[in-house]
Simulated scan of single mutants.
Amino acid sequence: MAPSLEEPDRVEDVIAHPLKQKPTLVAPEPEHCPGPESEQAGAADSCAGCPNQAICASAPKGPDPDIPIIAARLAGVKHKILVVSGKGGVGKSTFTSLLAHAFAINPDNSVGVMDTDICGPSIPKMMGVESETLHVSGAGMSPVYVMDNLGVVSIQFMLPNRDDAIIWRGPKKNGLIKQFLKDVDWGDLDFLLVDTPPGTSDEHLSVNAFLKESGIDGAVVVTTPQEVSLLDVRKEIDFCRKAGIRVLGLVENMSMFVCPKCDHASEIFRATTGGGRGLAEEMGIPFLGAVPIDPRIAMACDYGESFFDSFPDSPACKALKGVVSSLADQIGLDPRDVLPEQ
């Protein structure tokens, strides 16, 4: 097969205009072409008779008109935090659910969780609200409330069957993420946590583009100790820097195995290259802490219960509270106000 002679899109252009897809032209751009993304595309004198005229005229131009609407909808949200990792299976959704419950321990905190893992939504199961549905009122869609001060939005609530597969391309995923931000009545929140899928693609670009005007505090990057995980996490950190997203810090999940009976710690995933702490030092980002493996975390998520309520004295719970305190420092809050017992 002959190699493609098309000029590849630059990374900077994709990040700057993530929601605009370059139109597929049926012929090369002629001389004096204003360009398919120009305001004059399809209407300039040089466009007359061009085979691409109809395509260029119908291509989207200018900034997304919904972004100011999203900014107004989220005006009452104080802190917006992304939970990211280039690697799948490191426990992003588990960590997001634990982080939400940790913030919600303080009854004065209002917490929202937005599940943008469109193809694998697991937050509703972990929160114990898998069978719920979204309700629509004049103010918009209402989050499903796990507690009085903790609400969740996920595509899972829209599916007729919990086992239905989501077989969507990027534009449809982007549209749903926009709907979650624009049409959900989030109200006044202290924290909005956004759980993202693995990678550095459609969902991440969309969330960044939609939230940029309303402001993102930054991203918490989750990894496990082994180098196979750190390889992809380095790419995620690079994505955040190119997209202008502040990296609030790195969390090493599944750091050690802690026996529930004797509290003895064993190294299951050996940190052959320094683990999360070494990567944080290498990349010049804060290290928020290490969370040990505790089988009771998985059990709590399977039953949709709060790990903090069920096992408040466990080593994992204490480690998670330390992570929350470090994260509070990074976003300019007093840890004692976020977790009073700290």
Rank of each mutant, 00 (worst) to 15 (best):
D163L: 01
C47H: 05
L82Y: 02
S154P: 00
C119L: 12
T273Y: 04
G289P: 08
P335T: 05
T94I: 08
L150G: 02
F287G: 09
M254T: 01
S201T: 01
A71K: 14
S137A: 10
I166G: 04
V220M: 05
L279G: 07
E282W: 04
L320F: 01
T116V: 15
V152T: 08
G289Y: 09
T273H: 13
D217Q: 14
K92F: 13
P260T: 02
G244E: 13
F157W: 03
V26E: 11
D13A: 11
A319R: 09
L5G: 06
E39Q: 13
V153P: 06
E252N: 11
L134K: 10
T116W: 06
R270I: 13
P30I: 04
D185S: 15
V83H: 02
R296A: 01
D195E: 02
G62W: 08
D66C: 12
P63I: 02
K182H: 13
A243Y: 02
Q156H: 15
D309H: 05
E267I: 12
N161G: 07
M158N: 01
D148T: 08
D64Q: 12
W168G: 05
R169Y: 07
L181C: 09
V338Y: 02
I70R: 09
A44G: 07
I69C: 00
L25S: 02
I268R: 04
V111M: 08
N208Q: 14
E7P: 00
K20A: 12
I55C: 04
G276S: 04
A300E: 05
F311C: 06
V77L: 04
I69L: 15
M299V: 07
L19I: 11
I268E: 09
A300S: 15
V83M: 07
N161D: 15
K80Y: 02
P198A: 12
P124E: 06
E281L: 14
D185R: 12
D294P: 02
R169K: 14
F210G: 00
T116E: 00
G289I: 07
E305P: 02
R246K: 14
P260A: 05
L74E: 05
M256K: 05
S206P: 08
A41R: 07
K235Q: 13
P107W: 05
D334M: 08
D313E: 15
E282R: 11
